[in-house]
Design a protein around this nucleic acid. Structure first.
Lengths: 361, 361
DNA sequence: TCGTTCTAGTAGAACGATACACAAATCCAT
DNA sequence: ATGGATTTGTGTATCGTTCTACTAGAACGA
């Protein structure tokens, strides 16, 4: 990128008008520290010389404040704009930013697991160089190097998962998972498979030995689900790349190939759950018939799909996260938003116990 | 927003290691201008002191380069994320930015016509203060003050409409409009109403006396449509707020109230066209039956709606606009992308001439 | 006339980094 | 040993602001 031509600056204008630079600076920043007459005279010559006002970079350096906040996410930006969860979240962040006349800097980060370590390191460069006052962080697994950079740079940060060292806005994922678990248990489901977002590459699917590789929010939802199902419940976790409908579909194919077949499949997001439903449809097994399906988020498409899910106020979450950064009067360290179980047609009573399932105990 | 605590800087590190600041700077920027041993020693002490590397603001000032580009749009950010056109465009911009390790700054601008002059002026402040290397501009009417600021700041810019003074990526809107016009003419349509995006407030609807108040792209599409319809065609233009489906619906209600009724309604975007279709459905007049409907853009929802439209490569447009800013080898001033007529079921032969229409000549 | 308070403006030191020109040390081929 | 590269490293001016402390003069009351 070509450097912009060197233009006029405070000094240029000051000497043209015949005053000091401080005075010109004041003309822009402290209107009442100089006479109105002088002020208009300064603006007139500024316009003449083509001076556009104080340089943002210099001002940021001097003032230690840039008027923009960063949005961190390992979701490919190009994908982020097509994902209903992401757009709702971003819209919320934008709401708050708009109100505080702040701009929003989208910082592309390579997701671990998908990209090579080198790519990840490379992608963090953009974060290192970003001129921002703080960051909101959503959907980044705990080990990502970007988090260390945020720390090192001492950037104020707000996360959407519990963060002992910092502030956060979140729902009680564990309790929400429990709602789902109890709902399923109440319908007689004992054998449940979970399709859970992990740091896996898209397309990569595996049975999760432990829950360590899952995203924090997914881990909590699964834990809650276990609690909710109670002692009689049996849960298998299928770890997939984060949040792509295709992966939910592929994971379901794999699940249905195994014995014992679960009577319900819970996904850690609606996007994945839509994939689960698609896979069932392919096999002429409508959701809610042989197999019940649950999601998480309550994105608009969930309504049409009849998906039982947990509604969380996504946009409100983004809005609050940004406000925490921008509004000094908002001093809470941790805000828990309400989540609500939405029961639709994708869940139904478990079918009578088959020989396969009873044999499995 | 609280200023971050004052941390260590180049000087701190330099004196701790016992070298000059220039050397520490080189350790970060020119690895081969110092010995590997010294370099690792510098990094070690930097880590110890909690130094996160060169300060972005200072670097931007000195280097006249910030590593981020701005996206200008008068579409409310909160809405932008839900609009298929906008998200496709943003995804394209993000594609290119990602490849050049550049971040994307969304700059919220108040739309003229909707907001007060004061609000517009206020919103431009964010643009004034943005630390960016250039901007891509889409969907801003020619008179918006933001354009003057971009000029004054001498920011490199790429627009999506013809810009005599600058570079642009666009489709031939006029020719595309002509495609639609000829298609309609070929089906026997003579009396066509247009629902066109203008600087109007959302909800505000009026018959456009001339095309001056329309957005530039809309103006061209209407002009092309006129050409395509030929001498026998009769066009009424209904100006509405930009791109909201509800407005397309309301405008259609108004159109249908008037005599003579058009046999076809052309909208300057698919979003508006979906509103037209909704209005027709409300009146049990399916699109393609009594009244034909055309859109523009070919967003995903157009397929489901059976909408005849012009497909433009939206994402590719965003991608190229950003690349023009970031890739010095891309020197073209003006790039025209292909647009293609997609005929679906929303257009059909005009019904036999009714007394109302024949009376109107 | 003095002392005090305003008003309108100024000088100069940061802010933190990078580029340029230069210098000392090392190395290689004469 | 000499001359010339090459490698490493150093001072210092500069980017364009804003902030702190200060001053000259006017205004004002007593």
């Amino acid at each position: 990128m070509a450097s912009p031509a060197k233009g006029p600056n405070l000094k240029t204008v000051a000497s043209a008008v015949g005053v000091s630079v401080a005075t010109v600076s004041n003309a822009y920043n402290k209107p009442d520290h100089l006479s109105a007459e002088l002020r208009t005279r300064i603006f007139a010559t500024a316009r003449e010389l083509g001076y556009a006002g104080p340089d943002p970079a210099a001002r940021s350096l001097r003032g230690r404040h840039s008027g923009s906040i960063g949005v961190l996410s390992t979701v490919q930006l190009s994908y982020a704009f097509t994902d209903p969860y992401c757009t709702a979240y971003l819209a919320g962040v934008a709401d708050a930013a708009e109100r505080y006349q702040t701009s929003v800097l989208l910082i592309p980060l390579a997701p671990r697991g998908v990209s090579s370590d080198e790519e990840v390191r490379q992608s963090v460069v953009a974060l290192r160089n970003a001129v921002i006052d703080g960051v909101v962080i959503d959907g980044i697994d705990d080990g990502h190097p970007a988090l260390r950079v945020v720390d090192e740079r001492r950037l104020p940060r707000v996360r959407s998962t519990d963060d002992p060292a910092g502030r956060c806005v979140l729902i009680d994922d564990r309790a929400a998972g429990e709602l789902l678990g109890r709902h399923l248990a109440g319908l007689g489901h004992r054998n449940v498979s979970v399709v859970a977002a992990s740091v896996h590459a898209p397309g990569q699917i595996s049975v999760a030995a432990d829950d360590g590789e899952l995203y924090p929010y997914a881990r909590l939802r699964v834990a809650g689900l276990r609690d909710g199902l109670g002692a009689g419940g049996h849960v298998t976790v299928m770890a997939v790349g984060p949040n792509r409908t295709e992966d939910g579909q592929a994971a379901t194919a794999e699940i249905l190939r195994r014995e014992p077949r679960p009577t319900a499949i819970a996904a850690t997001s609606d996007a994945l759950a839509l994939g689960v439903i698609a896979a069932l449809r392919e096999r002429r097994a409508g959701p809610g018939a042989e197999v019940s399906v649950t999601g998480f988020d309550d994105i608009p498409a969930a309504v049409a799909a009849g998906l039982t899910t947990v509604r969380q106020p996504i946009r409100e979450k983004g809005r609050l996260m940004a406000r925490m950064l921008l509004d000094p009067s908002l001093t809470q360290r941790r805000i828990v938003l309400p989540a609500e179980l939405i029961v639709r047609t994708s869940t139904a009573p478990a079918p009578a116990v088959t020989s396969a399932t009873s044999a499995s105990r």
